[in-house]
């Protein structure tokens, strides 16, 4: 039997309900969200500015550096594992900073380690983001008052984009933090005129 006249039964059904005189084309998609619904099933075209696509790509494949110092590291591992899967956000862990664009500082940073944190941050290529996960990375955590060798917050060493509170934060909180970072990334203007 020859090929179906419309090529595919589903397509035929959709073509029958679709009115070919509907306005399709660039005019209906000036909104920067991929408004392919108004364009018809075979017009898989998205129109937007360059920032949209660059930021969309960046936020959907945030490769994070496996930098787990202390207890928050276990929550990070559990967030990336079976139940709270970070891979569905496109986030896979990389062991080397040269291939990662997100540094999740999970755990206490001591003075002995501070030098290495800075070096790891400098080894990451641009664009890079830092999430401070947990109380110890935010402000020094439970060791703020009495400890003599804990850096009171990783933002004393490197610039931080998102702070996630908790000791340790639940994996849901970590995912919320990553989604907040994704919002920050979507808002960034890469090519616009510098005001």
């Amino acid at each position: 039997m020859g090929p179906h006249p419309a090529g595919h039964p589903g397509r035929e059904r959709r073509e029958m309900t679709h009115d070919p005189s509907h306005g399709k084309g660039g005019a209906g998609a000036s909104a920067p969200t991929g408004a392919s619904a108004a364009l018809g099933p075979e017009a898989h075209v998205l129109v937007g500015n360059a920032d949209l696509f660059v930021n969309w790509a960046r936020k959907s494949s945030l490769w994070y550096l496996l930098f787990a110092t202390a207890c928050c590291g276990i929550e990070l591992m559990q967030a990336g594992a079976s139940r709270y899967d970070l891979d569905r956000f496109g986030a896979v862990f990389r062991a080397t900073p040269r291939q990662s664009d997100l540094m999740l500082v999970a755990g206490t940073i001591t003075h002995k380690m501070a030098d290495r944190v800075k070096r790891l941050y400098e080894q990451m290529p641009e664009p890079k983001y830092v999430i401070a996960m947990g109380s110890c990375a935010n402000t020094g955590g439970p060791f703020y008052k009495d400890s003599y060798c804990v850096v009171k917050g990783v933002d004393l060493l490197i610039p931080v984009d998102v702070y996630i509170p908790g000791c340790p934060p639940r994996p849901e909180a970590l995912i919320d933090g990553i989604m907040a970072l994704q919002k920050i990334i979507m808002r960034k203007k890469n090519y616009g005129a510098k005001a």
Binding site: A70, T110, M113, V150
Partner: peptide, 11 residues
């Protein structure tokens, strides 16, 4: 070692 020494005994 010592990269995670937080002084738990002094605390």
């Amino acid at each position: 070692v010592g990269y995670l020494h937080r002084g738990l005994e002094k605390i």
